[in-house]
């Protein structure tokens, strides 16, 4: 098994780990972390598999995609954190209120 697949598998596991954390945690900050870890997992899969060209240089297209993905991730994180902060300021609790409906 080449390291390519090793990293890809790590990516899969990271994705699942993040998903698991996203499920079990109620705290929003942790959820945001979990999403980031998931993202890292996906990126890892994308890039690891790009190395299968059989040459020295890997396929650059996934690399570009991942760079795009990272920027998207940081943007989303920033927005999510701000939302979380505002929500905490409103509710006094950094968790999703289970039932915000009347």
């Amino acid at each position: 098994m080449s390291t390519v697949f090793l990293y890809a598998l790590v990516g899969v596991v990271l994705f699942s780990l993040g998903l698991y954390a996203l499920i079990v945690h109620a705290h929003l900050l942790r959820k945001i972390l979990a999403i980031n870890v998931m993202g890292s997992g996906v990126f890892l899969v994308l890039v690891a598999l790009a190395k299968r060209t059989g040459e020295d240089t890997p396929d650059p297209v996934p690399h570009a995609m991942v760079i795009t993905g990272i920027v998207v991730a940081v943007s989303a994180t920033a927005l999510a954190l701000t939302l979380m902060l505002k929500l905490t300021a409103e509710t006094g609790n950094a968790e999703l209120p289970e039932d915000s409906r009347e």
Partner: peptide
């Protein structure tokens, strides 16, 4: 997945 794939490189 196949061990070798060039993708778009």
């Amino acid at each position: 997945l196949p061990p070798y794939a060039t993708g778009l490189s």
